[in-house]
Amino acid sequence: MPKLIKNLGAIVRRPISAGVIAVLALSSLTLPAQARETLRIGYQKSSTLISLLKTQGKLDKALAAANIEVSWHEFPSRLPLLEALNVGNIDVSADVADTVPIFAQAAQAKLTYFAQEAPSPSAQAIVVHKDSPLQQLADLKGKKVAVAKAAGAHYLLIAALNQAGLKFSNIEPAYLTPADGRAAFENHKVDAWVTWEPFLSGVQRQLPTRTLVDGSGLASYKRYYLTSTRYAKAHPEVLKLVYEQLHEAGIRIKNHPRDAAQVLGPLWGNLDVETVEAANARCSYQIQPVSADQLGEQQKIADTFFAARLLPKAVDAHDVEIWKP
C-alpha cells in the first residue's frame, strides 16, 4: 500500500488516462482483504457457559462481527488443557476449578485471570448412603473416602476434616475420577464420596443418599477463566468481547434453566433434564471480574495443598496477572 501511494503521488501532476484509471481500479479490487484473527479456546465437556456459547453459536457470531474467528479445542481433563495454554497452543481456557490456577502458579506458568464465577459452595459435597452409620464428619475417622486428587473436592475434604478435628491421615483416601468414584460409591467400595456438580445431583437423584456437608462455610468453589499473559496484553479487546458473552450466558442460563438443560444434557453424557437443572441451580454462573483482594481463599488452598505435599513449592496466590474488563 505505501508503494501504491507513492506511485499515485508521482502521477498526479500528469493527465490521467483511461488506461491508468482502469489499472488503478483493478489494483483496488485485487488488494488483499484484512486477514481474520483467530481466537483459540480450550474447553472440556463440563465447561458450562462456554459449551452453551459454542453450541448456540453466540460467541462465534459476536467475534465474527469484530473479524475474529473462533477455533475450538476440546480436552479430556484440566491438565492437558492447562499445558496447552501454558505452551501457547490455545489462547483462552474455559472455566477451571479454583485449585487449577494454584498448580499453574507452582509450575511457573505465565497465565492471567480474566474472569471468575461467583462462589457456588453447595455445588460440591460429601455424601454417604442413606442407611450409612456415618452421621457426622467425625464419623469419617478410619473410613474410606473417594475423592479426585488435587481437585476442589480434595480441598473441601481437607477443610471438612479439619473442622471436625481430624487429620487427613485419619481417613483412607481413594483417589478416583468422578466416574470411578461414582462406581465405587454405588457398589459400597467406599464409605463416602466427595464430588461436585453434575455428579452430585446425579447420585442424589438416582441413589438414596445423605449429605454430610457441602461447601458452605468451608470452600467457596469458584470457577476461573484463564488466558496466557501474552495474549491478555496483546488482545484486551478480544477478552472484553468474550467476557461480555460469558456474562450474558450466565444470565440466560438462570433465566431459562430448562432451555439450558436441554442443550447441556446430551453434552454431559445424556443426563436427563431434571438432573441438569438441579445441578445448575447450585451453580452461580455469575461472571465477575477478578481482583487481587478476592484471592484470599486461593491462598488458603495453596497453603493447604503445600502442607499436604500436593504442591512442589509454596505459592503466593496474589502473585498473578489479572486482566480487568
Rank of each mutant, 00 (worst) to 15 (best):
R252K: 15
A18M: 14
Y175E: 10
Q262D: 15
L79T: 14
V87D: 13
L24G: 15
T227H: 06
G250S: 03
A151Y: 15
I158S: 04
V128W: 03
P198N: 08
F114S: 06
I21V: 15
I41Y: 01
S46K: 10
G269R: 06
L24R: 07
V70H: 03
Q124E: 13
D139I: 04
L207T: 09
A232T: 05
P198T: 09
L52P: 01
N170P: 00
E172D: 09
D95E: 13
I253R: 01
I301Y: 09
A160V: 07
T55L: 12
N270G: 13
L246G: 05
Y155A: 14
G42D: 07
A307Y: 05
G152T: 06
L295Q: 07
L82V: 09
G296A: 08
Q56G: 06
P289T: 03
A109H: 13
A138L: 11
K300T: 14
S132N: 00
L311W: 11
V127E: 04
I102L: 10
S132P: 07
D180I: 07
L82T: 12
E83A: 11
N280M: 12
P312W: 11
S47Y: 13
Y43C: 01
L111S: 12
S169Y: 08
F199M: 14
V242G: 01
R40Q: 05
V263E: 06
V145L: 02
G88K: 01
F305L: 15
G181F: 04
V70L: 05
E237Q: 10
A10K: 15
R258C: 09
Q124P: 04
T55C: 08
S122C: 08
G142L: 05
A174H: 03
S28N: 13
G217A: 04
A107W: 11
A183D: 13
A109V: 09
L85W: 00
S93D: 04
G9S: 14
L137N: 00
F114E: 01
L49R: 00
A164F: 02
I287Y: 02
P32F: 02
V128T: 07
L39V: 08
V263A: 02
P101W: 05
R13S: 15
K144N: 09
A278R: 09
E274C: 06
L241I: 02
G142A: 01
D191I: 02
D98C: 12
L140K: 03
S122T: 13
T275W: 08
Y155W: 12
S120H: 02
H154F: 14
A260V: 02
V273A: 06
G265S: 09
A148E: 14
E277L: 10
A146G: 03
E277V: 10
V203P: 07
I50K: 03
P76I: 13
D180H: 14
Q204D: 11
L134T: 02
L218Q: 05
C283M: 15
I16P: 06
P208D: 08
